[in-house]
């Protein structure tokens, strides 16, 4: 008997994560660990985990991890990468972390074209604190702090931060994907692989936005959550490649 899905070597063995049933973090964690193994980057990997549900990611990842203050992931990643360019630096952030409190850090690290990868988990809600409205929450979406649904008059509109940074010359690779289906998960892995490759080649900033289910705070079953992503969330956040300047940057460098 041969085991077809081998345990990723950079994922700690036999740990049960603290994530809720059906949470997308587990899937993205596995993808990150698998890619570091496949691309042989785990030995120099340095991951910044956010303040949010993924704050305990160091309990699962079996490579070097640092935790950050809320929103400061890309500033810490900048400091580490600049101090030691041999590190393979990933900033793993949620939507509150990256597009609310960390907007300035996100925009400016992207604009500087820092040679780092950002994995951006967008679940349209603040997960860890119990389901409050995020800048990415959809219009009409009911959350703990928008019980009657998000209203543009009061709360403004869903923020498309990946689309914003994709327009920057410093951002080499930006893609939006979802982990709501096996096909989406495959695309997610490809997108993160491309992002990692961007940093390996020293081509600058890369970001992958992952639409990810939060069944607990959406108050849906995991299967229904995936359906909600595919039917509702993608209307606001269309998956697809947002920018890929790798080829032109390769030419520039050659």
């Amino acid at each position: 008997m041969e085991l077809l899905n081998k345990w990723p070597i950079y994922y700690k063995k036999d740990v049960i994560s603290h994530y809720c049933p059906g949470c997308g973090h587990g899937i993205v964690h596995r993808i990150v660990a698998e890619l570091l193994e496949e691309m042989d980057l785990g030995k120099q990997a340095y991951l910044v985990c956010p303040a949010g549900c993924a704050v305990l990611a160091y309990n699962y990842f079996d490579f070097d991890v640092i935790e950050s203050a809320h929103g400061r992931g890309t500033a810490i990643a900048t400091g580490a990468k600049r101090a030691n360019p041999k590190l393979f630096v990933i900033s793993y952030q949620g939507d509150g972390d990256l597009s609310a409190i960390g907007t300035a850090e996100t925009i400016h690290s992207a604009n500087r074209g820092e040679n780092i990868c950002v994995v951006f988990i967008n679940n349209a809600v603040y997960g860890m604190t119990g389901g409050q409205m995020a800048p990415t929450s959809l219009i009409g979406q009911s959350t703990m702090t928008s019980p009657a649904g998000r209203s543009p008059d009061v709360d403004g509109y869903p923020l498309h931060i990946t689309d914003i940074v994709a327009t920057f010359p410093g951002v080499t690779y930006a893609e939006r994907v979802s982990v709501s289906s096996p096909a989406g998960i495959k695309k997610t892995k490809n997108a993160i692989r491309n992002a990692f490759q961007t940093q390996v080649e020293g081509l600058g900033y890369s970001i992958v936005e992952v639409l990810s289910p939060c069944p607990t705070n959406w108050k849906m079953t995991p299967a229904k959550s995936c359906k909600w992503i595919d039917e509702e969330m993608v209307k606001e956040y269309k998956p697809g490649l947002l920018t890929d300047k790798r080829e032109e940057k390769r030419k520039e460098r050659a």
């Binding site: 008997m1 041969e2 085991l3 077809l4 899905n5 345990w7 994922y11 049960i16 994560s17 994530y19 049933p21 059906g22 949470c23 997308g24 973090h25 587990g26 899937i27 596995r30 289906s181 096996p182 998960i185 495959k186």
Partner: peptide, 20 residues
Amino acid sequence: IGCLMCTQVCPDLAIEVYSE
């Protein structure tokens, strides 16, 4: 049929698929 879809969507690495 060994498509491994279940292992892909599992957030907790709880499924193992073997082939003979």
